[in-house]
Design a protein around this nucleic acid. Structure first.
Lengths: 118, 118
DNA sequence: TTTCAATACCTTGAACCGCGATGTATCATC
DNA sequence: GATGATACATCGCGGTTCAAGGTATTGAAA
């Protein structure tokens, strides 16, 4: 009864988190984001365009991003910027992620005192 | 061509990682693992039995665990132990996870020097 | 000059994982 | 003798992610 908002897996939403974080630092376009994630993580994380573009569309639909089309070098780019709502969303996801990673790290270190991740 | 084994999402397999880690410390049975994860993470992570039992079955099938049935207080428990293969698997997953979490943390901290997670 | 690689956008089908629900059975408690 | 905790198990749903494909422009190579 009452379908309710379905429960996403507790580990999902990382691409969204990364994208929001990147856009908080500077406005970017989709293709740029794909490469930024690849390069800044030393290719440890590589999300494809098939992941990034849908996320961007959803975030824009939800009012977390604004899009602005700009022709550059004869190529059409769509630059995305964080809205205040997007910043809030980033803040929430970031907190959730840190709690999660800390909890996992806690188990991995054998329940001892948490070790720094790096 | 050549169908290949499909690529799991880069964020999956965390329950498996946690279970392997717990079993490395001591042998445990399914129901116990469910609660151990809940309590040791302060309820930040709560995987249900619908997650744990299938993972245990798969790990046993893959030779990463051995199962041993023990009646305790008239209740039948199935205790699982890590095999050497399981220990290797844990080591691999653990490394992968740490790399991943470090990479994400690196982006979250704005590409500066990584901050300790806890 | 045509062909290839890179840029830049996009969608779609399938896979997989995790989730809640559900089911069985035993034990202790009330 | 009903309820709740223990302990096992499975199943279908749904969401995320993935690879693959598609369009179009630019610039370099062949």
């Amino acid at each position: 009864m009452t379908p309710r908002d379905s429960n996403p897996s507790f580990m999902n939403g990382v691409p969204e988190l990364l994208i929001l974080q990147l856009l908080q630092q500077q406005e970017m376009y989709g293709y740029e984001i794909v490469q930024a994630i690849r390069t800044r993580t030393g290719a440890v994380i590589a999300v494809g365009e098939g992941v990034v573009y849908p996320v961007l569309h959803n975030l824009e639909r939800d009012g977390a991003l604004t899009a602005q089309r700009k022709p550059v070098n004869g190529r059409s780019r769509i630059y995305y910027s964080l809205t205040p709502a997007g910043a809030r969303r980033l803040s929430d996801l970031s907190t959730t992620w840190t709690n999660l990673a800390t909890a996992i790290q806690h188990i991995l270190t054998g329940g001892q005192h948490a070790q720094p991740l790096a």
